[in-house]
């Protein structure tokens, strides 16, 4: 069963990926205009520092640009690749790790765009999407949300989280699993995640 996350209100990420593969800077320009704010917001959420967030965002866009000839749009969305890279690199900065110490994991799922539409429509859909995910996170029990956020935005390992909140490691594993299962179920029920 393939699982797909609805990514955008239009399907032109594919066109951007093709432009990037051709080495067309206009493709990078469109990508930046579309996801630059999200990328910067994620970096700021992790780092809380404008200068370091700028460094991370620039680094990740250029990394994508330099590796775009190898990017396979059928393997994952540009947005997921970019935001995953920004989050990972931000955590590296936060924890003082060099980029080469991280083993980048390939995006383990297929993703595809859903429907077509204009830019204003995409913004509306993205705004609705953000509200839905915020709502899903807020509905999680506090201890589950805490486990997810300490890992995702602070870069703590499961063991560090268990020590910091003083609960058994198995409890943290369970909280993470339950949180992600609930998130998936909630978003799937509202059409944000597709099962195909």
């Amino acid at each position: 069963m393939a699982i797909r996350l609805r990514q955008d209100a239009d399907d032109s990420d594919g066109a951007i990926a093709e432009a990037l593969q051709r080495g067309d800077v206009a493709g990078l320009e469109r990508l930046y205009d579309r996801y630059g704010t999200l990328a910067y917001s994620v970096a700021m959420r992790v780092l809380g520092d404008h200068g370091r967030s700028e460094d991370v965002v620039q680094e990740c866009f250029l990394k994508l640009w330099n590796s775009s000839s190898r990017f396979d749009i059928n393997r994952g969305s540009l947005r997921t690749w970019l935001i995953t890279a920004v989050r990972n690199r931000s955590i590296d900065h936060l924890r003082g790790r060099a980029a080469h110490e991280r083993q980048e994991r390939e995006i383990p799922f297929d993703a595809e765009a859903a429907g077509e539409g204009s830019n204003p429509w995409r913004e509306v859909v993205q705004g609705m999407e953000r509200e839905l995910i915020q709502e899903a996170l807020e509905r999680l029990p506090q201890e589950q949300r805490q486990a997810v956020e300490l890992a995702f935005y602070h870069g703590y390992t499961q063991k560090e989280i268990a020590e910091s909140v003083n609960v058994p490691l198995s409890t943290i594993k369970g909280r993470m699993r339950l949180a992600l299962e609930k998130l998936h179920s909630y978003l799937q029920g509202r059409g944000l995640i597709d099962d195909a």
Binding site: I3, L5, T37, L38, Y40, S41, V42, M44, R45, S53, T80, I83, T84, V86, R87, I107, P108, F109, Q126, E129, R130, I133, Q134, A136, L137, V148, F152, R177, A179, L180, E181, L183, H184, L187, L192, I193
Partner: peptide, 18 residues
Amino acid sequence: LNRLSMAAAAIPLAVAEV
């Protein structure tokens, strides 16, 4: 992993815009 990664990938999309 596919299922949980999909949920994890959604987390940053809820971030407040800066």
